[in-house]
Design a binder for these strands. Structure first.
Lengths: 139, 139
DNA sequence: CAAAATGGTTAGCTAAGGTAACTATATTCT
DNA sequence: AGAATATAGTTACCTTAGCTAACCATTTTG
């Protein structure tokens, strides 16, 4: 087995246990990891339209509609009309901003534990490899 | 944003484009990436019972039942009764062994392209990081 | 040998998407 | 300017890749 195949093998093997664990942690906040992805995007990079969210997350518009509808329902985000009246800008509510901080703190020990025994440097290398692959695929 | 969060962010962002592309490549063989995962396991490590497959792939027994049923239908694998009469050993058929070779060759350019510009050494480091995380999570 | 454990299946559910077809607003092109 | 085209978002319905609960059939254990 070549190194390339071994890498992709490991990549896929990690996916389910990781996502399951994250969903377990997020249950407390009535969130799934997909919704958490949206909240993190809004936190890290500010308000986005639905289409922008779709492009960033590599998912289709209807999927974003549903994710955002649920987050609005819970009260973590709100939508405001853009200058372009077709557009809806999605932004965190005050409650949303608050909960994101709380969740980030809550997840911290879990993520730290997951990376236990891995050096900072290796994490950075792995991060760059993943980013590079993503760029190559979408090219 | 800390490095840890950045890593997990990249990990998740890569998942959908990657799996979509793989499924696209596998369409030609009437396979999904989940089924391909089973074929690869049988190729790399020989015949396995359903429970062994479930443990290896971190999925539940009923999911394995369905994956294997489909592969039997297509004719890529067959099941033989184990010494323990409850057990079913899943193994590649001749056609299955043949097709795995073909698919591996067919996927090669795609995987190489995905890793273009990444050094062997960095791939190895990234692979080890993923394996380590998986071990930490399941611990 | 009865009770518990293990391997596998069936039935029905869910998360996290996707496509097709539509409305409403904006943009472009003659 | 007005018609054709493009873009943002939604609705309805479909799919992949899982899941749990409940159930057989064997095997192991007390």
């Amino acid at each position: 087995m070549t190194n390339e195949q071994e890498f992709f093998n490991e990549y896929r093997l990690m996916y389910r246990p990781f996502t399951n664990q994250i969903n377990l942690q997020l249950e407390k906040y009535q969130l799934y990891s997909s919704q958490w992805g949206v909240l993190r995007l809004l936190t890290d990079r500010g308000p986005h339209s639905l289409v922008e969210i779709a492009n960033f997350m590599y998912i289709e518009k209807p999927s974003v509609t549903r994710l955002v509808q649920k987050l609005v329902e819970i009260g973590y985000v709100e939508t405001v009309a853009g200058k372009d009246k077709r557009e809806k800008l999605v932004q965190l509510t005050e409650q949303g901003e608050h909960i994101v901080q709380e969740i980030q703190a809550y997840l911290k020990p879990f993520l730290e534990n997951a990376l236990e025994g891995v050096t900072e440097q290796d994490i950075d290398i792995a991060t760059q490899v993943l980013a590079k692959i993503r760029a190559n695929i979408k090219k």
